[in-house]
């Protein structure tokens, strides 16, 4: 189980919970589980998200491993200038 914090536009999609617990060993499993357990998350997952694991932001690496006690944030996918 990892503790996941969703922020931004996604918070309402997980029924306004500050933190949720999810069984996931990598980013893809995390996102799949989010879309499965919280149907309102699906559009965001489809649109693309970034995941921060212990402070390092991953934009595309779906199979990045998530350590057991990692601090996980799901944030909007970054774009830039």
């Amino acid at each position: 189980m990892v503790q996941v914090v969703l922020s931004g536009i996604m918070k309402t999609a997980v029924d306004d919970q500050a933190e949720i617990e999810i069984e996931a060993k990598n980013i893809k499993q995390l996102l799949d589980a989010l879309a499965r357990d919280y149907p309102k998350m699906e559009p965001y997952v489809k649109k693309g998200l970034a995941v921060s694991i212990n402070g390092v932001i991953y934009r595309d690496s779906l199979y990045q491993k998530i350590p057991e006690d990692a601090e996980i944030f799901v944030i909007p996918r970054l774009a830039g200038g």
């Binding site: 922020s7 931004g8 309402t12 999609a13």
Partner: peptide, 21 residues
């Protein structure tokens, strides 16, 4: 509007709301 629960049923120019903190 995305990010508002429940999602509004009338259309508006507000594409989304987000919150951090």
């Amino acid at each position: 509007t995305h990010g508002v629960d429940p999602m509004p049923t009338t259309a508006s120019n507000i594409a989304g709301r987000c919150e951090f903190g």
